[in-house]
Amino acid sequence: MTTSAAPPPGTTADPSEIPDQPRGGGATWYEVLDLTPQASQAEVQRGYERALDLVEGRTIGGYFLLDPVAVESARSDIESAWAVLSDPGKRSAYDARLGAAPTLLPQESSPPRHPRIDHDEPEQPSAPERVPPPSAETPPSHSPDVTASLKPRPSLRFLKPIDDKRPVITFAPPKTDPAMRIGAVPTAQTSALGAVPTAQTSAQPEPPVPALVATATVLPQAVMPPPVTALPSSSTSNLPSLPTPPSSSGLFALEGEVNGQLLKRLREARGLSLEAMVDATKIRKPYLAAIEEQDFENLPARVYLRGFLMTIGRVLKVDKTKLAEGYLAFVARYGK
């Protein structure tokens, strides 16, 4: 098991800082990231990024979903969800807490929950209830499958796993297909936790009941990196080499130490000014500058830093996970 999908060192602080359950809409951490308990690590990561994109308004569908204060609140849910679900140990402890009496359908390795944009697929039959695995052993679906999230995507904003596979009327592609889907009686989607309906449409929707007892309301505190004491010597002699042209994956390769200088050179190589980068990433300029300048004191809280780095990686068309992990490692190495 690689560590690439695990939380960056130091991100997940004292578990007591993570609330027992989400404060906002979802009943579980899985729901916050729009996942089922069967989600692979790659899916957890994708869910995390998508959730941030939504609440921060980087996708059309999330535009102005929340006011600025509520964004912070939602973000803390997302970060807590990430902190719990990205850490195999915490995750299985959480699964154990959730699934008091789980029974399991026989299940192959990893559930097919890959991004789909095809709405014209035949309806899935009303799925039998899916519930978390019974045994304590980690199901194979937890094994990291990071590559899945790194496939080139024509447009990130639109490509997401459509979890809502309830019937939707949609138009057929221009040509022939007469089989437009009728959104007849929407079937209630079986939820992540057998007992918790997420979107029920019958006349008597039993509302989602939080599976966990609400006790803690403590938010995870932002973990600021300690002030800089010793920056790595940044002589021009060890300037990072620019990435090689895109591989077949459509991404530029990323080699050597990931640091602020590299990010800056990458940006300049793409012909982007800092302002253009602000536009493209929707990250505020002081943060972008601090990241590039390796100004550790003014970096965003670490839990946000990761999301920012992923976004930057996306815009720079490099392996964003590698970029984020690399930079976080760099901060961990020199930031104290």
């Binding site: 906002g24 809409g25 979802g26 729901e31 916050v32 729009d34 959730a51 939504l54 609440v55 996708t59 059309i60 569908g61 999330g62 979903l65 929340l66 509520a70 939602a74 944009i117 904003r157 639109f158 490509l159 997401k160 459509i162 979890d163 809502d164 939707v168 997420t198 979107a199």
Partner: peptide
């Protein structure tokens, strides 16, 4: 996807 994003966001957040 805009529609599905909206539904998902409404439910979750």
């Amino acid at each position: 996807h805009v529609a599905h994003d909206m539904a998902s966001a409404c439910r979750r957040f």
